[in-house]
Amino acid sequence: MKSYKGYTQLVLRINGQMRKAVVSPNDTLLYVLREKLGLTGAKPGCENGDCGACTVLMDGKPVKSCIILAVEAEGHEITTIEGLKDTPIQRAFVEESAFQCGYCTPGFIMNAHAMLNTVPDADDHTIKEWLSSNICRCTGYEEIKRAVAKAQKIAGGV
């Protein structure tokens, strides 16, 4: 049985690398990523599980890192926005101007990326179901929808 009391060293697998950090059981994954590992791409928006700005992938599935303890991430593969480079969804976000201030963007991209990996041919219903987990306050969401459609095309080689 694993157990943690007080500050201890934790080894996490993040973006394909082993990363070490001294954490306390009450540290959230978001906090450790940002403050201990310098991965500030995941953003705090509400720290309450509501906005999705802190979304990262855990074993390929999107999760809200503000309501996960860092100790829970042990043994799982974590992917943050820093781990994505030139993916179809990132290219599509640029081409479709799917952001304004950009604060929600890493969260949206992580979620959409996971969706496209899981359900490449996601239809409107699925896109709505997945992406309703994130809030964007700047755009009217139209450009984000278009970016997802474009990423599907890019990934499909069209």
Binding site: T40, G41, A42, K43, T80, I81, E82, L84, K85, Q90, F93, V94, E95, S97, F99, G102, Y103, T105, P106, I109
Partner: peptide, 15 residues
Amino acid sequence: VRREAKDKVEGRLKY
């Protein structure tokens, strides 16, 4: 295309 677009989609733009 926006100036800061690439930094935004890579999570590199710092707030």
